[in-house]
Design a protein around this nucleic acid. Sequence first.
RNA 1: GCGCCCAUAGCUCAGCUGGAUAGAGCGCCUGUCUACGGAACAGGAGGCCGGGGGUUCGAAUCCCUCUGGGCGCACCA
Length: 601
Amino acid sequence: MNSVNNPAEMVVPRVQAAIASAFGEEYRETDPVVRPSQFADIQINAAMALAKKVGMAPRDAAARIVEALDLDGICTAAEISGPGFINLTFDGTWIEELLNAASPGAPAVPAAVAQRVVVDYSSPNVAKEMHVGHLRTTVVGDSLVKVFEALGDTVIRQNHIGDWGTPFGMLIEHWLEIGEDSPAAALLVDDPSAFYQAARAKFDASATDADGSATDADGFATRARQRVVALQGGDAETFAVWQRLVAQSKRYFNAIYSMLGISLTDDHIAGESSYDAHLAQLCQELEERGIARISDGALCTFPAGFTGRDGEPMPLIIRKSDGGYGYGTTDLATIRYRVRELEANRVLYVVGAPQNMHLRMVMATARDAGWLPDTVEAVHVQIGNVLGEDGKILKSRSGAPVKLMALLEEAVDRARTVIDASRPELTAEERAVTARQVGIGAVKYADLSVGHDTEYVFDFDRMLALSGNTGPYVQYAAARIRSILRKAGVLERYTALDFADSDGGRPATPIAVVEPAERALALHLLEYGATLHKVREALEPHRLCTYLFELAQLFTSFYDQCPVLKSEDSVRESRLALCALVLRRLSEGLDLLGIETPENM
RNA sequence: GCGCCCAUAGCUCAGCUGGAUAGAGCGCCUGUCUACGGAACAGGAGGCCGGGGGUUCGAAUCCCUCUGGGCGCACCA
């Protein structure tokens, strides 16, 4: 961890020096166990663990550390309490120095080792509705990507859309039958699942008789199957139709991304189809090298450590007995491409948790084949299932499906109702803009603020809530600051500062940390960089949500207790500068979550 | 049967590589109410952290086990 002016990190070497001085050099590398504290600014917990090793009572060991500890200029108190905790209180002057020295535009120094990271996220299916489950991978992936970029990594976004496979015969035939320009075809953009289900219904009706036997009286099922063969066989006309079909779905995806403010574009699309040309060669290579073998007519790999129902090795099928390829094959081609062509040294799959075993098998096979060297880290960022109120996984086909676009529109409507009532002086257009920012912010924050790997029960009201631990709460704090700065006539000056310039980005007036509320705010501001590094390492955007919510809380508390505009002279200037810094952090943080900061709300 | 994930306040969720009386939001109760924008602030009630063992000076956190959920286990993706 290497953040800008983080007090806890700056204390560590001093504690290590004290431990070495007190107990000998061999203990210098001991973890000093510096932790947040509810009784002081920070606490050191190393004494208890060390006590046993050095044969002392924990409190005596703590006393020895304190004796050797040089806290000159950074702490005003070091007290031993409880079994041997060392509580440190930072020197207010030091906090002021750190706060004023920090270039506001450089909240976190870049990662020590910048990485070239491929992030696979969103990945919706062509001609299918994006449901609330897709929302999570899209929003989490987009936030991770932004944090990486903020810390200096090179990011390559990959939207692995489902645009290939057997359903496309059915979809293409259906599309041609109803006419590409028909209202029914327009469903592809407006209501994809309805389109898909119409095609599916037609296929099922054609493929089976009332008693379940195969009939295909009208020949639709047969034509659909032939169409798959034509598509995968490279038939030019079929391919052209398929391209138009996919293009329609891209319009739908982009409508969602645009509504959500997601940074994915068509340039990031690398769908399953794009690997099709490499599958045959890939299978051949694996078979020749003895990594894959025929089993029950299918070409499979059997990576170590995976067993199925009967305790027998579990296969990863890479070529079906009918000669076709499945997603295992494309996933292998994909991972090879990401390492070999995209030169990634970190590959992230922001994908649903149910895919875990499959992805691990793909990674294991890729390792066996040498396509995924040990120097490249591959991680499945598991997205937990979204459950219905019955505790079962929320499926788009079961019960009352929650359509993503409908959810987003409802969110904006609710925000609109609130702002129409509270800010009538704004123009209709301004209110519409803010309503969109707030409504979408609420939905995204709701999905980002919980651990990405835990499944959770979908709660319509929770996702659309505008108060409490929500995106709008954080946005509101920022809007209030803007209002204060505006009234003081310094909004332009502060927002126009070149924060990337270590001199020019510094507020003209130093921030004085006097009141408890100011002190709490200042300390929390200094945790920003460390928070971003944790998000990057643990791949957990929800930590940033927690940080921003706490920052907003600390600000509103400060706002309540410390008058800004009513203060005078240097106090007023200092508090304005503090407000400006908080605003900067709030809007930066929200931006990394993919959430906009409204001008007014 | 094997594997992955989960079980924390009435509800929805946090709790960082184990640290001192377990946190937040919502809901409920009480205050602030001519307010630098109340989408707010201050305070209160409410939990033997699913059960049981173990490791440790110390466990919501690590290990084992049981119970109860979710998901995945060969030609859909």
